[in-house]
Design a protein around this nucleic acid. Structure first.
Lengths: 231, 231, 231, 231
DNA sequence: CATGAATGAGTGTTCATTCAT
DNA sequence: CATGAATGAACACTCATTCAT
């Protein structure tokens, strides 16, 4: 008998012999073959985000996309490639959009920061696609090349955007001359935190512990603006 | 009746462990029952943090702890129980420590917030154990009961601590009467961000993109203090 | 978006089935889904009867059925379910067959009893399937629900059949008014004995100790008939 | 998805990680080392009979005997040897006893047969030791040498005994000149049936389906005597 | 193109057996 | 002698991947 009792049970992983009669019935209208990869990516995104890479079975992905397991492998040579495709596919758009708009923003730099954060949340954070940020962070250690990709495609541009907004504030005399590379993360971390929360603890928490993302973002942005302001 | 007089042979069932022919027998039979659980937890912590729950093989954990696979199951009835024990073992102590010290803090509330954040980072965030926070967030949906445990044992107390510090600032007239439950997350999110960074993107990033955690924490705490201050 | 354009490599997780280097690939991929369950049940019957439940390895069953281990689990979710399916499959039919024929039997009740016993032996006792009766008795305590099933499906109907034959003898004045529920077992026990013998001691006994089942049954039935008869 | 649903569950085998805090607490008074083998054999008999060879764990046997697992192996070099010792130890006595008494029996041969059967039941069948007959039959195919032993030590003498009683009846003109080697089994099979019943189905059956062994034996013996009698 | 039956390497878990103390 | 911690071979079961149809 072991000296201490480390026992305790109740998890969700691996119900043996689960029946795959999925409740996510595929829509009835005739689907074109062109849509297959997209549908598979969408189904895979959902499941990878929800359960992680290892706990997601390709059969389940295929079932949710309304195709057979064999078909999935017709489009993606392996589970790993499917995973990488999911990340690559969902990651590009949201970030590159904002760039132009920032340049044209009229208003105080404090307002710009708040606007950027809210926009980013509404366009990306609040959507299903934000799950891939969670995914990349969660599975980073097993997919090092994804991290490179993510850094190049997402993080670096995002940092540049935030950095330019902060620099605008400094240049216009609204913000003190803080270390921009450090302050960056004071803008980013609440957003990343919200994403992680949304996709991990959030769904498991009682309603009274839920966070109102936009209220928090506004409040945080205003604290930052105040903290950065001159005088 | 003399002992060992019961022998006689001829059956069909194969005897399990005869192993009579190996002259290279490893004489590794040590006796350290007291230490085993700790060594196993340590090894498991390393591997779970490094590779995640699913990608960690129990045999690997045992090997790193210097024991055989069977021995691991002598102390932990299943991989899942091992995982939970790792979480329980590494997560509670660091958080509860800070509580008393906060009450006795001498100095401004802004300094208190900065001090708390730095302490928490040094004692927990910077250590290997913080990897399990990342793990819990990553694997949350697969271990709902762990989330409950984590919320009860870690998040709620941590929130209470931060809340009390913020309330202190408000009560003493140093901080404006902000929404404490919202501001909370402005304190927590940089810390969680640092942990996620440390255990996911960090190890994959070139040195010039690394973040100096303490510098960032100080900078962030000061921004917050300024942002919260009266006038 | 062109299919199969999602590829890119560098991960840490090992791909499971590459197996690129085996030029001796067995081209054994047949497609006979209809037959599989029956073939597996047959193979399982053989092995369970021959070696018992625990000593039978599922891989051996699969091999004997000419399929891989995985295929077996495609049809039977667990070894236990396979076992139960074997029992259910082999046990019901033979017993229920006799019922109708008994009702129409022409001849003395003594002859009916002998005829029933011989029929039962020829149709069931002498076949491989009777091994599962032995199995159920042997493993009864480990599969309580199988016992229930067996009692309901086999024993109770068989008893009813025998009881009706005995009652017929009494009603027609051929047999004395004995306790039918006791006499029952005088009919059943030789049959069960023969089955146990056939599947346990029998195969290990020298030929001169073998029992001629039909001769024994006839002799026993005649003894019973005489013993039951009036006067 | 498999074509048919062979599923069904409810068994007793292998509760993983059962705790061995056995309810069969070893008696408190100082036990002598001489008793060890006997106590182990007794515990093993219980468990082997109840659960079969494979489903019995040596640790459980040791625990029930109040010793450690290592101690068991001090007396029995392997589980298989323990099993064989259990059979050998429990099998000899009961049968050889009756021999002398039969020779001196006063009374009709029909009464002798009934008396023999009842004696055998009381002295052996009704006791725990009869479990080894069940054991031998159940595990025969995996322990062929045990069958030889059992045949030599038990079956052959028992047959001789029964044969002599039947022959006595024939010689004294009480019984017809039946085939003694066949009639033998009409005497033996109810007894073996009762043993199997007692140790397998019996404990799982509702009380109203229980068999009264002595009533059945008497009834059966009288049927036989009548069936064998002249006229 | 699509299917889904078939595969088999891989992993968690068990348990008879050993042996240092 | 007795213990019980340690071992590791064995086995049930999983699931990504293949391929005949």
């Amino acid at each position: 008998m072991p000296p201490t009792a480390y026992i305790n049970n109740q998890s969700v992983i691996k119900p043996r012999h689960l029946n795959l009669a999925d409740p996510h019935a595929p829509p009835k209208r005739e689907r074109r073959k062109q849509d297959r990869p997209g549908e598979l990516l969408e189904a895979a995104l959902d499941l990878f985000v929800e359960k992680g890479y290892a706990a997601t079975r390709v059969e389940e992905v295929a079932a949710r996309a309304g195709v057979s397991k064999g078909t999935l492998f017709l489009y993606f040579p392996s589970k790993e490639d499917l995973f990488k495709a999911v990340v690559r596919h969902n990651v590009v758009a949201p970030v590159t959009q904002g760039a132009a708009e920032v340049a044209q923003f009229q208003g105080s730099s404090g307002a710009l920061v708040e606007w950027m954060m809210l926009q980013w949340w509404r366009r990306y954070g609040a959507t299903k696609a934000s799950g891939i940020s969670k995914l990349v962070m969660s599975e980073a250690s097993n997919f090092p090349d994804l991290v490179d990709f993510f850094r190049t495609e997402v993080i670096t541009p995002a940092h540049a955007l935030v950095r330019s907004a902060l620099q605008r504030g400094i240049d216009q005399g609204e913000f003190r001359a803080v270390d921009v590379d450090l302050t960056l993360h004071s803008v980013m971390s609440p957003l990343l935190f919200l994403i992680m929360w949304k996709h991990s603890m959030g769904p498991c928490c009682p309603s009274h512990e839920q966070i109102d993302p936009e209220a928090f973002i506004s409040q945080h942005a205003q604290l930052l603006a105040r903290g950065l302001s001159q005088g």
